[in-house]
Simulated assay, not measured.
Amino acid sequence: MDWKNFQALLSGVNKYSTAFGRIWLSVVFVFRVLVYVVAAERVWGDEQKDFDCNTRQPGCPNVCYDQFFPISHVRLWALQLIFVTCPSLLVVMHVAYRKERERKHRVKHGMEAKLYENTGKKHGGLWWTYLLSLFFKTGIEIAFLYLLHFIYDSFYLPRLVKCNSKPCPNQVDCYIGRPTEKKVFTYFMVGASAFCIVLNICEIMYLIFKRISRVARQMKRQTRITVSHHNDCKNNACCNCHLPMNRLDIKPSLRIKEDMRASAPNLSWAP
Score class of each variant (00 low, 15 high):
178 R>C: 09
38 V>W: 05
249 D>G: 13
183 K>S: 15
40 A>G: 04
9 L>T: 13
55 T>E: 05
65 Y>D: 00
35 V>W: 11
103 R>E: 01
96 A>R: 05
59 G>A: 00
235 N>K: 11
160 L>T: 12
147 L>A: 04
48 Q>K: 12
13 V>I: 12
41 E>Y: 10
193 S>R: 10
128 W>R: 11
118 N>M: 02
192 A>V: 03
185 F>A: 06
85 T>Y: 02
154 S>A: 03
83 F>T: 02
169 P>G: 03
216 A>N: 15
175 Y>W: 12
4 K>Y: 12
145 L>A: 02
250 I>D: 08
53 C>W: 09
214 R>Q: 15
75 R>E: 11
13 V>T: 15
21 G>W: 00
132 L>C: 07
61 P>E: 00
67 Q>V: 01
264 A>S: 09
49 K>M: 12
52 D>S: 14
263 S>E: 10
32 R>H: 09
141 E>P: 00
259 D>G: 14
67 Q>M: 09
66 D>T: 11
209 F>K: 11
68 F>L: 03
255 R>V: 04
247 R>S: 14
260 M>K: 13
94 H>M: 04
177 G>S: 06
237 A>D: 14
177 G>W: 04
122 K>L: 12
7 Q>G: 10
147 L>T: 01
93 M>S: 03
39 A>H: 13
265 P>L: 08
177 G>N: 13
38 V>T: 06
256 I>M: 15
129 T>R: 05
145 L>V: 01
99 K>M: 05
244 P>M: 13
8 A>Y: 14
154 S>N: 08
57 Q>K: 07
191 G>K: 15
101 R>E: 04
248 L>T: 11
237 A>V: 15
197 I>C: 12
60 C>W: 03
104 K>N: 08
180 T>F: 09
78 A>V: 07
22 R>S: 06
107 V>M: 11
131 L>N: 07
179 P>M: 06
193 S>I: 07
250 I>W: 14
185 F>I: 07
213 S>T: 14
217 R>I: 00
180 T>S: 14
75 R>C: 02
202 C>H: 05
247 R>F: 15
189 M>C: 03
76 L>Q: 10
54 N>K: 06
62 N>V: 11
227 V>W: 15
17 S>Q: 15
235 N>L: 15
229 H>Q: 13
91 V>R: 01
217 R>Q: 08
241 C>L: 10
255 R>Q: 15
244 P>V: 02
146 Y>G: 09
236 N>M: 12
186 T>A: 02
268 S>P: 04
83 F>K: 09
152 Y>T: 01
11 S>M: 14
34 L>M: 09
125 G>T: 11
225 I>M: 14
108 K>D: 07
70 P>R: 04
127 W>F: 11
185 F>N: 10
179 P>Q: 01
45 G>R: 12
124 G>V: 01
